[in-house]
Amino acid sequence: MSVKPFCFTPVSEEGMTILNVSRLIKYFPVLGGVFLRRTGWVHAVDDVSFSVEKGKTFGLVGESGCGKTTLGRCIMGLYDLTGGSVAVQGQSISNLTGFQKKKLATHLQMIFQDPYESLDPRQTVQQILEEKYRIHGHDSSHLSREIRQLLSQVGLSKDSLSRYPHEFSGGQRQRIGIARAVSMHPEIIICDEPVSALDVSVQSKILNLLLELQQTLGLTYVFISHDLSVVRHMSDQIGVMYLGKIVEMADAQDIYDNARHPYTRALLSAVPVPDPDTEPRRIILTGEVPSVENPPSGCRFHTRCPHVADICRQEPPALISKGNDTRHVAACHFF
């Protein structure tokens, strides 16, 4: 029986939804005992939904361990879903065959956090960039010219082709990773903390490169980071994650001007203010982050929330809009 290929028609109009994540759930089994039987579940991502328009950037922000990277890998198809679905231009990509995933890979790519670990140290830059072309059966007659153009696009010289990853700086290695991601002319790129492993002086250059490529190539980003300043600079819409759930979601500027969830406010209070005459007003969260293996009942943030009440311990709040702006939603009983 022949395998039906994944058919993806590129979206040409901005404003159209290109990526839709619906009630996505990802649990990992916890194994224990002599026979390694399942003793529980790690609730890595729990009922997350959002959509991204063509040419826009959706930012995901939250503390380490909140499920951001797992969510990105679920969208990429690197993890099988426990529940929910991921759709690209209305077509589900959650249960594709191996051949269909290979077809999808030309339209959906990922930039990884560590620019060294994500590159094969035994391959030269030319071999790294040629690999995807060969896997997907591209014509090799113009391959050298395309790769040189690709390097120029990300700010590297053609002399880089014969060198190995360890011969480059962290920023240069990330440029190689970006070149590999855009080589197949994808529609969507998942950016998983793409500048967190880089020096501050290099971060802005990589971020500006990503913005430039988005403009010239019409890319759509899901931008994952724990740095609120970076997410604000890059994103059109932001989702704030805590313990596997999105607790607030709104347009980027609205999140910063009118944050409603106590967790979002605490994160924003930690962002340095570039004015020495302005006294920072830090919101210090007490207590430890609960275990994702045994998340608290009710609101997952109630163990650290300064506004906690009995209803917070008993009933999980819905992620709903509170006010005239239906695009700004928060999961809190009081805000």
Rank of each mutant, 00 (worst) to 15 (best):
E193V: 08
V200I: 13
V182S: 07
Q174E: 09
S118F: 09
T82I: 02
L104W: 08
A181D: 00
N208L: 10
E117M: 10
Q172L: 06
P186L: 04
D80L: 12
L108Q: 05
A105C: 13
S183L: 06
Y164A: 07
L143M: 15
A197T: 13
R173T: 02
Q127H: 07
Q149N: 15
L104N: 05
A105Y: 07
Q153Y: 05
R134N: 09
A181Q: 03
Q172N: 11
G90T: 04
L143S: 05
S162R: 11
H136C: 10
E130I: 00
R173M: 09
K102Y: 02
L198C: 03
S157Y: 08
F99E: 14
L211G: 08
D139P: 00
S140T: 15
E117N: 14
Q174Y: 03
Q172F: 03
Q149H: 15
I176A: 05
D199K: 04
H185N: 15
S141L: 08
G84N: 11
H107S: 13
K132R: 13
H136K: 04
E146A: 11
G155D: 00
S140G: 10
L156R: 00
P115A: 07
I111D: 01
Q113R: 10
Q127K: 14
Q127T: 12
T106P: 05
K101F: 15
Q172M: 11
A179I: 01
